[in-house]
Simulated scan of single mutants.
Amino acid sequence: LKEGAVPELALARATTVDETKRMMRRLSKENTKQYGRHLGKITHSNPSVVFDTILSQIQAYDNLIVPVVDMMKYITPLSFDLLTFMLLSHLASPSKTRLKEDGLNVSIWMQSLSSFCGNLYKKYPNIELVGLLQYITNTLKSGMSLQLIVLRDLVTKMAGIDTLEDLSADQLQAQAGGETLRTCVTDLLGLAKNTKRSSSRLKDALLKNGLVAPLILLIAQQRSACVFQGTSQHLKQLGELYDRCQETLEQLKEFLTSTVPPQEYATLLPTVGELCSEYNLEPEVAFFVARPILNHQEGLSTGGDAK
């Protein structure tokens, strides 16, 4: 018992933790409905304790992610808000190491939490999402790019857009086609299933809170900073950080260009000249980010000339 703690509250907390762990030991894909109702009851009185225990279990056993997400259909909106708070508390915990002992790969606990975030926000898109996106933005401002794994999982799960790997020759050739042809590839790979609501929710969270430009600019800046200003001496880790920034930037830009009209996209970002001069982006990155705007302007000028 901690000094100054109230014995009755400590007993209630210990009882709730024990009940939650007992429920998690029995949880499987077949009984999520039964334990989902039970979860709704115990989170009604002690949500922070329950979610703290559940998230700790998920970090150790990633096979619990899907059943846990499925059984959360019965909890209240207030409990979902507490879940978001506990998620941020675990992600931002200063006592945890975010890299494995080899110093190269992301820790298992962080990969599990990231995957849980993606699955959770896809299945329940009405949960408050801005706090998590703002946290990712703030970590990028602090020069940390490891949290980009969370953004990648969010875009992958909620929008069905992922970095494609190990493609066949036909699938690779299809990526050079139009939007419909590229969509066929993602459909075959099973990436874009039931993402309409969650994709719209993610887009609204980014647009309404003005996070599009900050995220794109910070990821692009971190892409260079992780190589030239980073403290790591491991060449492989630098390569991993650089690749993660590049892949996340491509993924986010692909999501925005597929959901936001070009004329609206143009209002969200500075011009190519400003991206290079004021925000110190490399020219190739600035043109990559602004490509949809340039294509739209070129189309307008071509249409005007034709008239």
Results as ranks from 00 to 15, higher is better:
3 E>D: 13
6 V>K: 12
6 V>S: 10
10 A>Q: 06
15 T>D: 00
21 K>I: 00
33 K>F: 09
33 K>H: 09
38 H>R: 14
42 I>M: 02
43 T>D: 02
44 H>A: 14
45 S>K: 09
46 N>R: 00
49 V>N: 00
53 T>F: 00
54 I>S: 00
60 A>G: 07
66 V>Q: 10
81 D>R: 14
87 L>H: 02
92 A>N: 15
92 A>E: 12
96 K>Q: 13
96 K>V: 13
101 E>N: 13
102 D>I: 03
105 N>W: 07
106 V>W: 00
112 S>V: 10
120 L>P: 02
126 N>P: 02
133 L>S: 06
135 Y>K: 08
138 N>Q: 11
139 T>L: 08
140 L>K: 02
141 K>S: 10
141 K>D: 12
151 L>C: 08
153 D>W: 03
154 L>N: 03
161 I>D: 03
161 I>P: 01
171 Q>I: 08
176 A>R: 13
184 C>E: 14
185 V>K: 02
192 A>P: 03
194 N>H: 14
195 T>A: 11
200 S>G: 14
207 L>M: 12
212 V>W: 01
217 L>A: 04
219 I>R: 04
220 A>T: 11
223 R>V: 04
225 A>V: 09
226 C>T: 15
229 Q>R: 08
231 T>W: 04
235 L>T: 13
242 Y>R: 15
246 Q>P: 01
249 L>F: 04
250 E>Y: 05
257 T>A: 08
259 T>M: 09
270 P>H: 07
275 L>V: 08
279 Y>D: 08
279 Y>F: 13
279 Y>Q: 11
280 N>A: 12
281 L>G: 05
282 E>Q: 15
282 E>S: 15
282 E>H: 15
290 A>F: 01
291 R>G: 07
292 P>F: 03
295 N>F: 07
296 H>N: 11
297 Q>N: 13
297 Q>L: 10
297 Q>R: 08
302 T>A: 10
305 D>V: 12
